[in-house]
Structures are given as C-alpha cells and as structure tokens.
Design a binder for these strands. Sequence first.
DNA 1: CTGTTAGCGCGTTCAA
DNA 2: TTGAACGCGCTAACAG
Lengths: 346, 346
Amino acid sequence: MTGVKAKRVTIQDIARKSGYSKTSVSFAFNSPERISKEAVEKILRTAKELDYIPDPMARNFSLGRHMSIGFLLPQIFQESLQNPYMISVVRAIGSICESRGYTLTLVPPLHSSVTEAIKNATVDGIITMGLRIDKSIREVLRQRNLPLVSIDGLENDEIPAVSIDDRAAAKLQLDKVLEKGHRRIAIITLPGSAFSGSSSDSIAERRLCGYKEALSEYGLSPDSVTFIESGATYIDGMKCAEMILADSLPSCIVTMSDVVALGVIDEISKKNLRPRQDISVIGFDGLEKDGFPCHGLSTIYQSAEEKGRKSAELIFSMIEDPKCSPSPVRIGFEYIEGNTLSQRKD
Amino acid sequence: MTGVKAKRVTIQDIARKSGYSKTSVSFAFNSPERISKEAVEKILRTAKELDYIPDPMARNFSLGRHMSIGFLLPQIFQESLQNPYMISVVRAIGSICESRGYTLTLVPPLHSSVTEAIKNATVDGIITMGLRIDKSIREVLRQRNLPLVSIDGLENDEIPAVSIDDRAAAKLQLDKVLEKGHRRIAIITLPGSAFSGSSSDSIAERRLCGYKEALSEYGLSPDSVTFIESGATYIDGMKCAEMILADSLPSCIVTMSDVVALGVIDEISKKNLRPRQDISVIGFDGLEKDGFPCHGLSTIYQSAEEKGRKSAELIFSMIEDPKCSPSPVRIGFEYIEGNTLSQRKD
DNA sequence: CTGTTAGCGCGTTCAA
DNA sequence: TTGAACGCGCTAACAG
C-alpha cells in the first residue's frame, strides 16, 4: 500500500455517489458517447462536486504507457545543460513530443550510472546523445523492452542512430583552413579523442581522422599541428586559448564546437590580439542558425533541429511499431562563411 | 487491458519459476535481508535467466509516487528553451532532482492548455516560471493534490513563490543609467507590460514601476523615455534595436534581459555605430555569471542557479511534508559593472 | 443502445 | 516465507 498521502478521491467514490458503476464513470470521461447524455452529466457533476479527476499515473499504468520520452543525459545535469548544441537538440525533440501530447523527461545518470537511470525511467522510449551504448545498457533496454535512439553514437550498430559524417565534416573544416593558407594551426578537440586513451569510437576520434586526411592531402604531417583537448564550454575555450597563446602563436585555431570557439575569440581579444586579423578561428555546430548568437563565427553547420526532430520521429515510429528496426539517419552539414576565418597574411 | 506490446516478464513469472512467492521475489530485489541468502540467490538467478527487472511504473504506482518533478513550460517548447535564463534555472532544478534520484520532466502546454498539461503530468510536484496561476490551474492542483512552486509569479499569494524584488531591481538598473547622465533613453520591455493590455501583474509591470520611480527621482517624466515591447530572444533584440534606431538615436538602450541586450549590441554594430561609445546598453539577468558568454555586458544580476535551487528545495519540502506551506523566498540582485554602459558624452 | 460485472496490469505490504 | 488484498482506472464480455 502507499504512504501517508491524503486519501485521494477515486473513480470508485464517484461511482458510489453518482449511483453508476465504475465503468460508466470511466466512459463519462473517455467515451461520453458510449453512455446516455444524462448519465454523463450526472457523473461529471458528481465528479466536480467531489473534486475528482482521473489519476494520470493509474491511467497510464492501466494503458501500459507513459506518455513521455526520456532524454538520457550523458553527464550530470550541470554539464549537459551547459552545452547549447545539446539544448538545441533537446528543444527540437521537445517540440515533436509536444505535438504528440508527450512530455520530455530529462534523465540524469542515477548514482553516476546511466544503466541504473534507464532501469528506473518511466518513459516510453529513450533518446541519447554522445553516449557509448555498452553491454549493460543494451541488457536493460532488452529487459525493459525499451526503444532507444542514439544521436552521434556508434555507427554500424544495431541501435538506430542519427548522426552526421563527422569524418567528412571535419575534413571539410580543415580543408577550408588550409585553403586559406594557414599552416601554423592549433586544433582544440573534444574529450574522447585518442589522447584521452580508452574510447574506441567517438565523435572526436572520427573527426581526427578527417583532420588527418585533410592534412595529408596538403602533404602535411599531423605533427605539424598542435592538438589540445578541452571541455565543451565557453570557459573551457578561454582556458584552452590561454594555454595555446602562452606557448606559441598559431595563425588559426580550429575547434570542434562553436562555444569553445567563442571562448577562444574572447581570450584572443583579451590578449590584445585581433581575432580574424591576427588569429583566425573556426567553430563547429552552426549554433547561430539555431538561434544562439555567434557574431558571424565561421563554422561547420550541422542542424541540431534536424537531429532532434529525426531522432524523435524515429523513437515514435519504434513505439508505434515495436517490430520495426529503423535504419540509421544521416544529417547533412555545410561550411558557413563567417568573418573569423581569413586568408593567412604572414 | 493493455495494447499489443510484447508480453513482459513479470514478478509472477519469477515467482513460479523460482518456486518462491511474489512477496519473496519483491524482497529479493528491495530488502534482501528479509529472506534467506539462498532464496535471494535463487530468485536473482532466475530473474537473470528470464531477463527480468521490476517495472518502474508498476513500482511507482504501487508506492504512490513518480520520482519526477515537472517543470511546466509557460510557452511552447521552441520558445521556452530559447531562453537562456530559463535554461539556467532548469539546469539548477535538474541538479537538485539528480541528487535526490529524481528525473525532471519538461511539461509543455497540452493542446495549448497548461491546465490540461497539469492534469496529465505524471510528476510529484510542479515548478513553473513566469506563469500566471489562474483559477483553473489552482483547481487542478487541488484535485490532484499536487504541490507547485512558482518562480517569478505573483506575490502576496498563497502559492509558494521564488522571486526577486523586480521593482527595486529595475529601479537600480535605471538609476545606474541616469547616474551616467543619460537622458535620451529607450527601454525595451518584456511581453506582459501595461502596453500589452490585460495582464495585471507581471515581471514587466513590476519593473516598469521601478523605472518610473527612478525617473521621477530625477524629475523626469515617463514620457521622456521611449518604451517598446519585445520578445525575449537575441533576434527580437536585433529587430527591436533596428526599429529604435530607424526612429531616433538614444544615448542608452535599456533591456529587461541580457539576450535582448546582446541582440541590440549586434544590431548597433551592424549599423556602423559603436556600442558603448555611441550608444550604451544595459541588460538584465547576469547570464555571464551563469556561464553564458556576454562579453562584458553591463547588467543586473539575478542568480538563475539560486532561483532554481531554492524552488526545487521548496518543492521537495512540500512533497516530504504535504502539510507545510512554505513562505515566499526572495533572491538577491546586484548591478554588474561591465563595459557597455558609459558616461554620456554629448 | 445503456449499463454492469469481473478481472486485468504489476509490484508492495499486511497479517498470518 | 507466503496468500491475499491493495492502489486506480480501463475494458472485454455480457445482460437488459
């Protein structure tokens, strides 16, 4: 039995007081056409008197659904919702949920465990972003029979995924930089690149491949470039730029995310250098197109809106047809000409 | 009965197969110490074989709880999550939820109705922001026995609220502007000011009172100031600035939100005017302190983190003790000296 | 067509 | 260690 909560009015109470059966009360709320007008009236009147409305949890339990999609946060709340790109994706997912009458449940790791979090999430499906779906996660998904869509996840995997071709996008990014004549280049990578050791396949790694490809096409060695790993926030970008500038003076700083690039730019200004004229900067994400002010940052655009929308549509199709196992979805990308990547002058 | 979902393994199945009762199975998962070691082992082994874990919804239903807090979005998803200040508040709420093992459910209006949304939200409590809590909302809250905390809501109200003294904060803001000698002032207000007609008490209105007070202390009439209402996004700020600049040339533009101020600044630059030197700008919120890059915008700071945290703590205290009706919480505010509000020169 | 009876869903917990 | 009741609403099947 339950705790000490004040005893709620139930469908039973309305049945008794109105003189009808539970069934009729249920009908009055959900299929008024199924019973007589007067019955509906009397029942609803009684319900109003007793201040009754059906309990949504009991209702959902009975119907075997939750009316909510879970967005599984890869890190703790504080960090996940610090990332504007992730927020834009969440916003897009939310819009789809909204149009279907669903809520969107943000699910943080439970006791630092995403697996535990999935075990306990009362949702009809889960969308995740930038998370490695390991064995224990797959197990729980199977046990709970819970559909999951992974954004920016592994490729060649049985789990439905939405992503861009990160390798090609990164290559395009560095191509633009090299085209402009830059050779003294610093690249700020996201966590999860080869440098951090373990992770076998991550966005950062895929993009690194793209970078190396671009370099090799120009006959350059990866060693000619400074790589440095950083978190994905504005502050991280500033710190990282500070480290880089203390050391050398690249003609271009390449980042794997727009917010990092913004931090870099502000740090450059702070050092009394001029972004663009003295040091070029290029970002990644194209946040400006999704409504986040970037002041003309040159960047690679990947639509957060589309990623979110597509993944939500995928999850709903899986909920509606549990048998269907959708194929991966590829989102496009493009170079956005801003005002922070200029021709090398020196 | 439910739909066509693949039949899940239930506690009953484990009981049968393991030779123990449902009760014992339940104990094996929740209070292993209540039954023998071998029973626990055998049961858990059987569960593993059949790929069983307890269903969280059934569990929560049985326990009369949801393990989730609802954040009620005042507008549609798209708009609500466009607002960095709201996002910062959500982030803080989420962190508290996280630490208690709760999820955070984002609840958009259902069929454009917040009341309907509340009726159906499977959550233990609701936090809302900038929403007028009308009669029909109160009714549902009572019916559902659902605690609610309102951020930036009405004052002198029986609903627990978390807010700042908006009137005083706005006065401080305009005081700073007037101190610097500005007299040709344009003020961009949020929706819900007197101009928009109806709303009887909103943030915008309270702040307007503060502005008028400041003006009157300087012997100035409200008519000497240009008021213009705007949405709360970067883009809205740009548009608004465009309108203002097409008309006249104020020496200072005052906004009710930092993002709007950022839009104004970029629009000023676009017009080949210099923000700060030619036109001063002051914002409101202090987003920079909450991790959102504002490049030294002068502003009034109100802690989003604190608003979120306090409201989450309130809601949990109400959940834990349904009888308690907490008193309103006031958050502090302060002027942040940036580099966008300068002495009037002309 | 209107209304009812009975039982389900799944895990928790009281009383034995 | 367990059988039975419980939480709350939904609905198949049936009777008038």
